[in-house]
């Protein structure tokens, strides 16, 4: 375990702590969704305000029929070090996902539906992108019950004002 410590620099101004983050989740793969959830939860753990904005395929993370079936992308994912023709075999994505979920369970990383609930309980605010909801012909009731709302990009920027925006 490495402990991060800022070396004191003479005359340096201590940066102001981050007080708010607004995180955009745009991808629907397991590796696309988890980093955003971990960062949002980590923000709340540090007492930082957290907004999470789900757009495009990222909405799968909070779509009732999909959120329990999020998979690792085994094609087009060079980081996996798996030849593309193998990654495309039937069942490969499910297999890799199951392995990764097993590993995450040992690290106390919750499954996605539980993680979303944890975020809400922690005081993070969850939003859906109006353009994406319209584009995919979805309705409010298709989504996790505790979403705060379906909002426009303009609303998102207003909400993010004064904080940091993270796109994943």
């Amino acid at each position: 375990m490495t402990t991060i410590q800022n070396a004191p620099v003479e005359g340096a101004i201590t940066p102001a702590p981050i007080e708010k983050v607004s995180i955009i989740v745009s991808k629907g793969s397991l590796e696309g969704i988890y980093p955003a959830l971990i960062m949002a939860n980590g923000a709340r753990m540090e007492g930082i305000e957290a907004n999470v904005f789900f757009t495009f395929f990222g909405m799968d993370a909070v779509t009732k029929s999909r959120m329990e079936h999020i998979k690792v992308a085994t094609v087009g994912n060079p980081g996996l070090h798996l030849p593309t023709f193998l990654g495309g075999l039937p069942g490969m994505s499910a297999l890799v996902t199951a392995q990764m979920e097993k590993k995450m369970a040992t690290l106390d990383i919750p499954p996605i539906p539980e993680f979303i609930q944890l975020l809400v309980d922690s005081g993070a605010r969850l939003f859906l992108c109006k353009a994406s909801v319209d584009m995919f012909d979805l309705k409010r009731e298709d989504f996790f019950d505790e979403m705060e709302g379906i909002i426009t990009v303009g609303d998102f920027y207003q909400m993010a004002a004064g904080g940091q925006i993270i796109f994943t």
């Binding site: 709340r44 753990m45 540090e46 007492g47 944890l118 309980d121 922690s122 005081g123």
Partner: peptide, 13 residues
């Protein structure tokens, strides 16, 4: 529960 943890210890339980 988590919700109450954040009420009891507001700046990061």
């Amino acid at each position: 529960p988590v919700k109450e943890l954040y009420q009891l210890f507001p700046k990061g339980p």
